[in-house]
Design a binder for these strands. Structure first.
Length: 505
RNA sequence: GGGCCGCUAGCUCAGCUGGUAGAGCACCGGACUUUUAAUCCGGGUGUCGCGGGUUCGAGUCCCGCGCGGCUCACCA
């Protein structure tokens, strides 16, 4: 390890090995020597399992009396003198293991008494049911596969400290079954997405995560540097512009489930890196994207919960299509009584002020409308709803409406007060796109550091011709929050970003 | 960034107005041959987040800092 890396090393809240270890760790280290003295490698090798714990429980009628082998972590130990019970957990669940001195011999039995909670073992024995009715394995041979040097958290209360749960997710996963369940559900949801897109003829692609120009969203990027090229790079804030280049190239239906990075605040709904799925379909429009979004979310909900009605933080949410559609102007009118689209820019600013909104002196009607929507309306939409016809000023990549050039063919799918998905008929007029970028650059020069930069190559791609295209982006973590009833995005991200607990030096 | 709350044993938590730091689980020793939060007997294992200050004396009061949670702000 280089000196440079040494400087980066932190302990991240885990005990510093230079400090004297706790008594329990010392005791467990002594067990390491015990096992070695017994000729047992405390970090053993492969072990062939015949069954998982749940397979034995479910197949008991057929398996009773036959020999099986399982492996897992010892999570409980109940000794009764010359007989003991161990709970061994694998991913599928829990299996009770019965160790009896008469069956094993005194020497082997006393060896098993040296097993600690947290040790990983292989168990070979006979399936039976105890007097109390519990399916168990009468162990014939128990093999230590891995010695655990650290004690497990409280067997009853588990690991509750939120800080430790995120920093030491491995412990969280060991002891908290609901956490395991959430991440298994996450995996099912992502699989369901891939199946959904595949069944509709989409191909999965991978575009660069390091961009020379950040684009495709309004967000501040992370900046990094490539040494050999001596070049500033940005971690991507969206996959949009590269995916649309692929539509130009003729791939017709593409999607990417990709990590994006935004250098912004952290909250229960924001992690600096998060997963977004973006999908683009040639010859489609934003109405096709509505149908696609509804169907995608339904398929994910069925995969996660088996139902299209879910409970989120005490609220019932009905995801059954079709979802209602309402224009942004109409929904704002309904909530505030203000018909922004009938006003001039100046009247709109006055109306916004009357609603208690702070808008810039030169804010346009569209900006005021969007402000009113985001501040006063969005949070009240619980059941999934398509809010359509976004103002053009805040939609630099969306196609202009032919019937109202100040609005776009764009919608956001809103649910439990949050944006779930964002979609539009993609702007494919290269000259219009260049003007939109120029307007964004002007905003940037006025101090909006989240406005787009000019992307000449993207405009060049559009000049080659991009077919009419519908595109949609959806925050995967937020969908998973909804479908797993998770209050915080950190509960659906295995390793959320945390400050190191101890600064080096 | 603001406000509120938290940080005490491996884990979950008590610790009143300042007076030698506690419980349950885990752990250690002993008993116990179908238990399951096993039970029974004995044992407390600690940098009270870190650093200052006040005080005869600080887990407790004051100041600063660190990390976290909630919330507001920010955030397509």
């Amino acid at each position: 390890m280089s000196e440079y890396m040494d400087e980066l090393e932190t302990t991240n809240g885990v005990d510093n090995p230079e400090v004297a270890e706790s008594e329990q760790i010392e005791q467990r280290r002594a067990k390491l020597e015990y096992w070695r003295s017994q000729g047992v490698d405390p970090y053993g090798s492969r072990f062939v399992r015949s069954h998982s714990a749940s397979e034995i429980l479910e197949g008991f009628e057929q398996l009773e009396g036959s020999d099986v082998s399982i492996a897992g972590r010892v999570m409980a130990f109940r000794g009764h003198g010359k007989a003991s019970f161990l709970d061994v957990h694998d991913l599928s669940g829990r299996m009770q293991v019965y160790a009896k001195a008469d069956h094993l011999g005194e020497d082997i039995y006393s060896q098993i008494q040296q097993i600690d909670l947290g040790d990983i073992v292989g168990v070979e024995g006979t399936v039976f049911r105890t007097r109390r009715g519990e399916v168990s394995i009468d162990v014939k041979r128990l093999t230590l596969l891995t010695k655990a040097l650290r004690p497990l958290p409280d067997k009853w209360h588990g690991l509750k400290d939120v800080d430790l749960r995120y920093r030491q997710r491995y412990v969280d996963l060991m002891v908290n079954a609901d956490v395991r369940r959430t991440f298994l559900t996450r995996s099912k949801i992502v699989s369901a997405m891939r199946e959904f897109f595949t069944s509709r003829g989409f191909i999965e692609v991978e575009t660069p995560a390091m961009h020379a120009l950040p684009g495709g969203a309004a967000a501040r990027p992370f900046i990094t540097h490539h040494n050999a090229l001596d070049m500033q790079l940005y971690l991507r804030i969206a996959t949009e512009l590269h995916l649309k280049r692929l539509i130009v190239g003729g791939l017709e239906r593409v999607y990417e489930i990709g990590r994006v990075f935004r250098n912004e605040g952290i909250s229960t709904k924001h992690n600096p890196e998060f997963t977004m799925v973006e999908v683009y379909q040639a010859y489609a429009d934003y109405e096709d994207m509505m149908e696609l979004t509804e169907s995608l979310v339904v398929q994910c909900a069925l995969a996660a919960t088996g139902s299209t009605v879910v409970k989120y933080q005490g609220k019932d949410v009905d995801l059954t299509p079709p979802w209602p559609r309402v224009t942004m102007n109409q929904v704002v009118l309904d909530h505030t009584g203000v018909d922004f689209m009938s006003l001039t820019d100046e009247e709109a600013r006055a109306a916004a002020a009357r609603l208690g909104l702070e808008v810039a002196k030169d804010a346009t009607r569209g900006v005021c409308l969007n402000e009113a929507y985001e501040e006063l309306v969005e949070a009240h939409i619980i059941n999934p709803t398509f809010v359509t016809d976004y103002p053009i000023e805040i939609s630099p990549l969306a196609k202009r409406r032919t019937d109202c050039p100040q609005l776009t063919y764009r919608f956001e799918a809103v649910c439990v007060g949050r944006e779930l998905a964002n979609a539009f008929s993609e702007l494919n007029d290269a000259d219009d796109q260049r003007k939109r970028f120029e307007a964004q650059v002007a905003e940037r020069e006025k101090g909006d550091d989240e406005a787009h930069v000019m992307d000449d190559d993207f405009v060049c791609a559009l000049e080659y011709g991009m077919p009419p295209t519908g595109g949609m982006g959806l925050g995967v973590d937020r969908l998973i929050m909804l479908l797993t009833d998770s209050a915080s995005i950190r509960d659906v991200i295995l390793f959320p970003l945390m400050r190191p607990k101890d600064q080096p030096e």
